[in-house]
Design a protein around this nucleic acid. Structure first.
Lengths: 134, 134
DNA sequence: ATACAAATAGTAATAATTACTATTTAAAAA
DNA sequence: TTTTTAAATAGTAATTATTACTATTTGTAT
């Protein structure tokens, strides 16, 4: 893959972001410093950066794809109120082990070959929960 | 919710299907006996039938939503080759228990309220695997 | 039988993403 | 260091899945 400033900036934006930006967010932000940046370029590069494993693509129900700088195995929650995506942590390590054990141990009787498992949590984030209480 | 022939036929199609039809599949099939059926009607009714719990909506990465007649807790695999959705069964009941235990036991430290967990398997189905071997 | 709100058909609009093509550019070759 | 070449981009058009809109139709309560 040949170098391009656009790809470098796109990767930089995702890796510096504390959130999980969508293509559109990346586009809107980078446009400020690169007014000629094209949305197609953002999509194409996010896709190829995910393919080569520099970032991770996260698909959510009824919404845009998000991109994640964190490559280690972890999970996400999509807030049904603010529609933002958050990393999810468990207070009991057993829980996260249960999830990753599951991914390893799956063995099915249909004879189909499982290549990966998507696990996505839905609910309401702490910020929106505290707003509700006010 | 007021009765309509359209909704009855849409529900019937999903419940009689051995597959997991998308809105478009339901539409194309029912059009044969109901030439004036509108795609919007199919979407609206699939959504409301899922809301009242008569069928289940299944969202997959990068593709149309599918609908499922089976209401009990179970999981699906999307074949990356033929793009069809299949029910997934495990030869060890421990596996399926691991999954549903997980759904119950999740307790997180972010203080967010988890309302549901989506678990989707991706891979290659047995039919496509046997084609590859030939 | 009448009235009324809910549902439909048909069409238009939207949102997310991919495809297309002329132009630009990184980097290999001369 | 210029020339060449293929990969990448910008800008636009097309596509896919889904929702919104509105005039008309249809269940069902009165």
């Amino acid at each position: 893959m040949r170098y391009s400033v656009q790809r470098e900036k796109i990767l930089e934006f995702v890796t510096k972001s504390s959130e999980h930006p969508t293509a559109d967010i990346v586009y809107k932000n980078l446009r400020r410093e690169m007014p000629n940046l094209s949305l197609g370029t953002v999509y194409r590069n996010l896709t190829s950066l995910a393919r080569i494993g520099k970032i991770k693509k996260i698909t959510v129900a009824n919404g845009s794809d998000h991109y994640d700088k964190t490559l280690e195995n972890h999970y996400h929650i999509l807030c049904n109120k603010c529609k933002k995506l958050y990393d999810i942590y468990f207070n009991d390590t057993v829980d996260i082990e249960k999830v990753s054990d599951l991914e390893k141990s799956i063995n099915n009787e249909n004879g189909c070959k499982i290549s990966n498992i998507d696990i996505m949590f839905y609910g309401i984030c702490n910020k929106c929960l505290s707003k509700e209480r006010m």
